[in-house]
Design a protein around this nucleic acid. Structure first.
Length: 861
DNA sequence: GCAAGGTC
C-alpha cells in the first residue's frame, strides 16, 4: 500500500484536518520532537487504497542568517551586509529537530500533500518542507505527480474535503517573494542596526540601551509614537468661549443646554452673543425629535481587537496578552488565538459553546435567556481565510484560571456571547431651543432594550435623565445663561490600542508580530509604558526618529514597508523576476545606507544635546594597564570601562555589579582587576577588563572572568582556584570564590551551580594536591577556633569537598539566585554523596598542571 | 548582540 504524507503548519491544524478527513477514525502518536503528532488512517487517493500520514511543522522550518564569520561585529563593515556577505538557511528551532523529524516520517512515502496555511508564508514553508522531505521519499515514476498543495479557506468539513479533491501545486513565486522579504529584512535591518549601535555606543556613555536597532517594522512603530510626541510638543493651547444655558424643566429640575455654535474663539463676539441672550427670560421650543437608535453588537473577535481591548480595558500589554491567550488555547479554554477573521464560518456551531456557558456563575441568566429565545445572527465580518474568530471552548471559573488568565477568558467569553446577542436599542430625544437669536439643543438617551450591553456592561448607553415631554411652541423659563472660558488641550500620548490600530492600518507587522514590535521598542528603551498604557518616547527614541527625518525620512515613514511589499507582490504574481527585484531593492537601500552613514553627523548633533560623551560619563574605578590612569565605569547598558586617555572601551559582563578588586593587577597586562557579582546569594568572580575583551589564551572566550582563565600561575586563575568538574553541566568547572568568606562558596564557571562550603573558616586555599578518589583539588581550610566543626581542638583540615567525610557534611549545593529559571538544572540537592554522578576532573585547566612551564607554553597564543 | 515571520 502506498503512503501519502500530509503536512500542516501547526500541530493543532494537523489534528483537526486529520479528524475531518478520516471521519474521526485515525490513530495518533507523538513525533520524535515531542511537539508534533502524526495521525494515521487509510483511505483512497487518486483511485487507490493508501495509508495517510498527517503531521505538521511548527511554523517556519528554516531561518535566514549570515554565514558565521559575518556575524563578527568588529570584523565586518556593515556595508558588506548588503551584497558581499553570503547568507544561509539554518534550522529555525534546532531543539525541534524539524528536518530530521520530517525525514523520518517522510521516508518511503510516495506522495506528499501540503496543508500549510494559505498565505505567502505558508507557501514558503511548503518549499522548506519539500527541501527536507523529497530526497527521502520514494522516487516517482517518470510522469506521475507526487507533490500536491491543498488550498482551503477555513477549517470546516466542507472546505477541507473540497480542498482534498481539488489538489493543486505549491506556488513557487509566492514562496520566492517570502525568500526575498527575508533577505531584505535581514540585510537592511542588520546593516543599519550594527552601524548605529557601534557609532553611537562608541561615542556616548549614557544611551541606556544595549542596542540601537533599526527595522522596517519597529522603526515606523516608534515613528508613530514620536509623531504624537511632536504634536504634543508643538501644541499651542487656544482660548475659546462657550455659552451655556440652563432652563427650568420642572419644579426642582433644570436642563443644561448645548450651544449650537459650540464655541467661538473671539472673546468679544462671545460676549456679544451672551449680551443678546442674557436679556431673554424664556426659551422657546423650536422642534422636538425622538429617534430609535441602535448600538451594534460587536463583530466576532480577532487577534488585534483582543489585543486592543486587553491593553485599553484590562491593562495587559500585547505581548503578555498574547502569551496568556496562548496558554488558554493550549489548555483548551479558547480557540486558536491568532486570526484576522471576524466572521464565523457558515457551519460554525454557535450554540454548542453557548450551551457550555449556561451554568456559569457570572452569566448563566443571560445565556439561558439567549438559548430560550434564540440567538441572534452574528454580524457579517471579514473572512481572512485563516482561522475562525476567537471563542471560548469550555466553561471556566475565576478560581480555576486565576488572575490575568481569567480576566482575558472572561472578556473573550463575554465578547462571544455579545456577538450572538441583540443590538442595544435606545431612544434618542432632542429638543431644539431658541433663546433670543441663539439656538441651543438638549439631547437625552433612554434604553429600550439593552441587548448585548447586558453581557458587556462597559459598553452600555450611559444612564441619562429623560427629557421633559414638550412640543414646538412650548416655552421654558431661562434659569441662567453664562459664558465659559476654556482652552483647547493637546492630545495625550499614544495608547497601545491606538498604536495597534495605526500599525494594522498601515500594514506594519501581522497579528502575530505586532506585539513583538511594540515589545521591541519598549525593551530597547525607545519608549516607556506610562499609566493608561500610553507610550511615551524616551530621549533616545525621539532623537532617533528626528534624526531619520533629518537624513532620510523614508527610513521611518510607514510607507517603507508597503513600498517594499509592492515590489514583493510582483514576485508573488510572477510579474517580476525574484533576483532582479531583490537586487534592485538592495541597491536602493545600500545607497540609502551610504547616504545615512555620510550624514550621520546630522543625527549626532541631536544625540549630543541629550547624551554625554563617553569621556564625561561614569565614575573612575580601576586603572588602565597601558597608561595607568583611572578608567571610568559606565553603568548604563551596556556597562563598560572607558579609558579616555587611550580612547579604549572594555565591555563588562552585564546584569551584575562591578567593584574594584583590592587594586590587584593582571600579571599579563597590568590592568587592575575588578570584581563582578550578581546579588547577595549569587556568584562573584574577579575579572581583568583587558583579558575579558581580548582573551589571552586560545581556550578562553570573550567576556569571561579569571575563573575561566587558564593562566597557569596567576593566583586568581582557574588553574589556581579550580577544584573539579561541575556536578551538573558538561563543560563547567567548580572554582573557589576567593572573596566569598566567611561563608565560603565554590561556583561553576559556566552554569549557575553554587556550593556553599564552610561557614566559619577564616582562610580557604586550593591545595596543590588532588583527591585520590576523584582527582578534584583538595581544599586547605583554617577554621575559626571557637566554632570549628573539626573534632577536638583542631582548626586546620585539608581534604576533598566531595569525598572527605568531614567536608561532605558541610557542603550544600545551590543554584545562583539571579539566574533565569529556564536555565536551572534539576532541583536543589542537599549534601553530596560520594562521587555521585560526578566525572573525574580531567579537563585542561581543571587540575593543576604538573609541569607548569610546558603547560604555559601550550596555552599562550 | 542585529530583522521579521512563522509557532510552542
Amino acid at each position: 500500500m502506498k503512503t501519502v504524507l500530509m503536512v500542516a503548519e501547526k500541530p493543532s491544524l494537523a489534528q483537526s484536518i486529520a479528524r475531518i478527513l478520516s471521519r474521526g477514525s485515525m490513530s495518533s502518536r507523538k513525533g520524535l520532537n515531542g511537539t508534533c503528532s502524526v495521525h494515521e488512517y487509510t483511505g483512497t487517493f487518486t483511485g487507490q487504497l493508501v495509508r495517510f500520514k498527517m503531521t505538521s511543522v511548527c511554523g517556519h522550518v528554516m531561518t535566514l542568517d549570515f554565514l558565521g564569520k559575518y556575524n563578527k561585529w568588529d570584523k565586518v563593515d556593515p556595508a558588506e551586509l548588503f551584497s558581499q556577505a553570503p547568507t544561509e538557511k539554518k534550522e529555525a528551532n534546532p531543539k525541534l529537530n524539524m528536518v530530521k523529524f520530517l525525514q523520518v516520517e517522510g521516508k518511503g512515502c510516495d506522495y506528499i500533500v501540503l496543508w500549510l496555511d494559505c498565505d505567502k508564508e505558508g507557501e514558503n514553508i511548503c518549499f522548506e518542507v519539500l527541501d527536507a522531505v523529497l530526497p527521502v521519499m520514494n522516487q516517482a515514476h517518470s510522469s506521475e505527480k507526487t507533490v500536491f498543495r491543498a488550498r482551503f479557506s477555513s477549517i470546516t468539513d466542507t472546505d477541507i474535503c473540497t480542498a482534498m479533491v481539488r489538489l493543486g501545486e505549491p506556488d513557487h513565486n509566492e514562496a520566492l517573494s517570502v525568500d526575498a522579504r527575508q533577505e531584505l529584512d535581514l540585510r537592511i535591518g542588520c546593516a543599519f542596526t550594527r552601524f548605529q549601535t557601534k557609532y553611537f555606543q562608541g561615542k556616548y556613555g549614557n544611551l541606556d540601551s544595549s542596542l540601537i536597532s533599526f527595522g522596517p517594522c519597529q522603526t515606523p512603530t516608534l515613528g508613530f509614537c514620536v509623531e504624537r510626541h511632536d504634536k504634543i510638543q508643538s501644541f499651542k493651547p487656544e482660548t475659546y468661549w462657550v455659552l451655556q444655558a440652563k432652563v427650568d424643566a420642572d419644579k426642582d429640575r433644570s436642563l443644561l443646554l448645548d450651544w449650537d455654535r459650540v464655541r467661538v474663539f473671539d472673546r468679544e463676539i462671545a460676549q456679544m452673543f451672551l449680551n443678546t441672550t442674557k436679556l431673554e427670560k424664556e426659551a422657546q421650543v423650536e422642534a422636538t425629535s425622538r429617534k430609535e437608535k441602535a448600538k451594534q453588537r460587536p463583530l466576532a473577535l480577532n487577534t488585534v481587537e483582543m489585543l486592543r481591548v486587553a491593553s485599553s480595558s484590562l491593562g495587559m500589554g500585547p505581548q503578555h496578552a498574547m502569551q496568556t491567550a496562548e496558554r488558554l488555547y493550549t489548555q483548551g479554554y479558547i480557540s486558536y488565538p491568532r486570526t484576522e477573521t471576524t466572521h464565523y464560518p457558515e457551519s460554525f456551531d454557535l450554540k454548542g459553546p453557548l450551551r457550555q456557558q449556561a451554568n456559569h456563575p457570572y452569566w448563566a441568566d443571560t445565556v439561558k435567556q439567549l438559548l430560550a429565545e434564540g440567538i441572534n445572527r452574528p454580524r457579517k465580518g471579514h473572512d481572512a481565510g485563516d482561522h475562525p474568530p476567537i471563542t471560548p471552548m469550555k466553561s471556566a471559573t475565576e478560581a480555576e484560571l486565576g488572575g490575568e488568565a481569567w480576566r482575558l477568558y472572561e472578556y473573550i467569553t463575554r465578547h462571544f456571547i455579545a456577538t450572538i446577542s441583540h443590538d442595544c436599542k435606545y431612544l434618542q430625544s432632542t429638543i431644539s431651543f431658541r433663546i433670543g437669536p441663539e439656538r441651543f439643543t438638549c439631547t437625552g438617551k433612554t434604553v429600550i432594550s439593552p441587548g448585548f450591553t447586558e453581557i458587556m456592561p462597559w459598553q452600555s448607553v450611559p444612564l441619562e435623565e429623560s427629557l421633559p415631554t414638550c412640543q414646538r411652541g412650548d416655552t421654558f423659563a431661562v434659569a441662567e445663561v453664562k459664558m465659559l472660558e476654556k482652552q483647547t488641550s493637546p492630545p495625550d500620548y499614544l495608547t497601545e490600542a491606538e498604536l495597534i490600530t495605526l500599525m494594522e492600518k498601515h500594514g506594519i507587522g501581522t497579528d502575530a508580530s505586532i506585539p513583538v514590535h511594540i515589545n521591541n521598542i519598549c525593551q530597547r528603551n525607545y519608549v516607556v509604558v506610562e499609566s493608561g498604557r500610553r507610550l511615551k518616547p524616551t530621549n533616545l527614541g525621539i532623537v532617533l526618529v528626528h534624526g531619520y527625518y533629518k537624513i532620510d525620512a523614508e527610513l521611518v515613514l510607514p510607507t517603507i514597508r508597503s513600498a517594499v511589499e509592492k515590489q514583493l507582490n510582483l514576485i508573488a504574481q510572477g510579474k517580476a523576476d525574484y533576483r532582479q527585484v531583490l537586487g534592485h531593492t538592495l541597491d536602493v537601500f545600500k545607497r540609502k545606507f551610504h547616504y545615512f552613514v555620510d550624514s550621520i553627523a546630522g543625527m549626532d548633533e541631536l544625540m549630543e544635546v541629550s547624551f554625554s560623551p563617553l569621556a564625561a560619563t561614569g565614575k573612575p574605578l580601576s586603572r588602565c594597564g597601558k597608561c595607568h590612569r583611572f578608567m571610568k565605569y559606565i553603568q548604563a547598558k551596556p556597562s563598560r570601562l572607558h579609558c579616555s586617555h587611550c580612547d579604549e572601551t572594555y565591555t563588562l559582563p552585564q546584569n551584575g555589579t562591578i567593584k574594584l578588586y583590592k587594586e590587584l593587577r593582571c600579571p599579563l597586562d597590568d590592568f587592575e582587576l575588578v570584581l563582578w557579582s550578581s546579588g547577595s546569594r549569587g556568584k562573584s568572580y574577579p575579572l581583568c577588563p583587558y583579558c575579558s575583551n581580548h582573551p589571552p589564551f586560545r581556550d578562553m572566550k570573550k567576556g569571561t572572568g579569571c575563573n575561566e582563565c587558564t593562566h597557569p600561575t596567576c593566583q586568581h586563575s582557574l588553574s589556581m582556584l579550580g577544584i573539579g568538574q561541575c556536578v551538573e553541566c558538561e563543560s563547567g568547572v567548580l572554582v573557589l570564590d576567593p572573596t566569598s568568606g566567611p561563608k565560603w562558596r565554590v561556583a561553576c564557571n559556566r552554569c549557575n551551580v553554587v556550593a556553599h562550603c564552610f561557614e566559619n573558616a577564616h582562610r580557604v586555599r586550593v591545595s596543590a594536591d588532588t583527591c585520590g578518589t576523584c582527582e578534584a583539588a583538595l581544599l586547605d581550610v583554617d577554621f575559626n577556633k571557637a566554632r570549628s566543626p573539626l573534632p577536638g581542638d583542631g582548626t586546620q583540615h585539608t581534604g576533598c569537598v566531595f569525598c572527605d567525610p568531614i567536608f561532605q557534611e558541610l557542603v550544600e549545593l545551590k543554584h545562583a539566585a539571579s539566574c533565569h529559571p529556564m536555565h536551572r538544572g534539576p532541583g536543589r540537592r542537599q549534601g553530596r554523596g560520594r562521587g555521585r554522578g560526578r566525572r573525574p576532573a580531567g579537563k585542561p585547566g581543571t587540575r593543576r598542571p604538573k609541569d607548569k612551564m610546558s603547560a604555559l607554553a601550550a596555552y599562550f597564543v
